[in-house]
Design a protein around this nucleic acid. Structure first.
Lengths: 238, 238
DNA sequence: CGTGAACTTGAGATTTCTCAAGCGGGGTGG
DNA sequence: CCACCCCGCTTGAGAAATCTCAAGTTCACG
């Protein structure tokens, strides 16, 4: 059970039929997680790769005093502990919504990567893109206003969800609370709430009940100083 | 000419004699960069890996209006455009000090990785650790005060330089200006300057003329909420 | 001795935070 | 079926951290 995995890989590299078949043949036990459950925890040294089949997840570190920083989001088709192949986890990955996750044994993944260099390349590219995203978040947290940061995050998630076909019309399911948003952007909930109202007030987007609607993509991009090139996707959603 | 490269790899994986020899046999033309020169620029699609032999470098994005965010530092022994093997550069890497850089053709690097899986593993681990560092910076920018952030950065660089033998006594050469520091931490130069004075005033460190001296490692760690585990080094500098 | 970059200081302006409280809907036990 | 409760959202208001602007100092270097 590898769900959207092949499609995600093909966003980042060309695969042969044999490659695709090998990926599809990957073994994996599926487990469902409820929102808020840890998919993998800080300190774990995983022996399987956790592939997100459906739902969203986020990586985060939580400090003793409760301050939390979300460091990235995962969408379906992504492996959320790829680094676990080589290192112990230094942070946790938690389900943002209900999520189905396939557990692929490291041995099977290693065999796939050894036998299929194009798959390995594509997979490492996904990892490199994840870093590129992290760097862009640093730019936001270091140098952009709360207003631009929030707009930028919505742009990013909209573009990523669109790339995997999860945007319909101008709407996508993005079940994030304002608390998560704050923790991802390094803001207080109160401030996040106020800025969000400004974004809505300007007619750029709607965001209620976990549903994001982009009313003015150009305007939102401008507000967020968003340029999709760091996502290394084949096509920018105009 | 691969300088400290083998030692750096051995921080992250066990190599055989054959592995070491293969690494040492890597071809590479050396070029010297002066402080401020771009080693690789945004938009480049490199055909060599740039291995830092001596000196320091930093990755950064600079926005049109001049705001700049530094996203990481590189120390000798590190490849500063490893992602260039698979992706075009979406940011620049600039020499922080005078630096010697070896240019290793991608073909040679790929042959090494194909023929020496342990080297490939160690190299990917360096990449994964770089991400771990990026995530820790996000925690800092999102959730730590300027005071803790600055202390944390000094802790990190001290620990990294120590791991490669570039700390003598409690001193190391870290030729960074307060402007760079600000751009790395998302602060204004003025505020950075004031916080730095506090750190000095408390006797935690000295930092002048590009020389960092740590007077009170435990105190500095506490000030920066620093825990070296995210660096995935074998030994914490006590 | 002149120059420029880096550093330092002062002071007022802003952004963002914290504390505190009220609102609203969904789920649940009585 | 209803009351209650909790979580997430919203609002108000004062506080704190950090920024911006402006200017002066220091030091290395030519």
């Amino acid at each position: 059970m590898v769900g959207r995995f092949v499609e995600t890989l093909e966003l980042y590299g060309r695969l042969s039929d044999a490659d695709r078949e090998a990926v599809a043949a990957l073994p994996g036990a599926v487990r469902r997680f409820e929102a808020g459950e840890d998919i993998v925890s800080e300190g774990d040294a995983p022996s399987q790769c956790r592939l997100l089949l459906s739902g969203l997840a986020f990586r985060h570190k939580t400090l003793r005093d409760g301050r939390r920083q979300i460091m990235s989001f995962h969408v379906p088709g992504e492996i959320c502990d790829l680094e676990g192949l080589l290192l112990a986890m230094d942070h946790s990955v938690t389900a943002l919504s209900r999520a189905d996750v396939s557990f692929i044994p490291h041995a099977a993944m290693e065999a796939l990567l050894d036998g299929h260099p194009q798959v390995a390349k594509a997979l490492w590219r996904t990892e490199l893109v994840e870093n590129a995203v992290a760097r862009e978040w640093m730019v936001g947290m270091g140098r952009r206003s709360a207003y631009a940061r929030i707009a930028h995050l919505f742009c990013e998630m909209y573009a990523r969800l669109r790339a995997i076909g999860l945007v319909e019309g101008a709407r996508c399911w993005f079940p994030i609370t304002q608390t998560h948003l704050s923790d991802a952007l390094g803001l207080s909930v109160v401030h996040t709430n106020r800025v969000l109202q400004a974004l809505r007030g300007e007619g750029l987007l709607s965001f209620r009940g976990g549903m994001l609607t982009v009313h003015d993509w150009q305007g939102l991009k401008a507000a967020g100083e968003f340029d999709a090139s760091y996502l290394h996707l084949k096509a920018d959603p105009v």
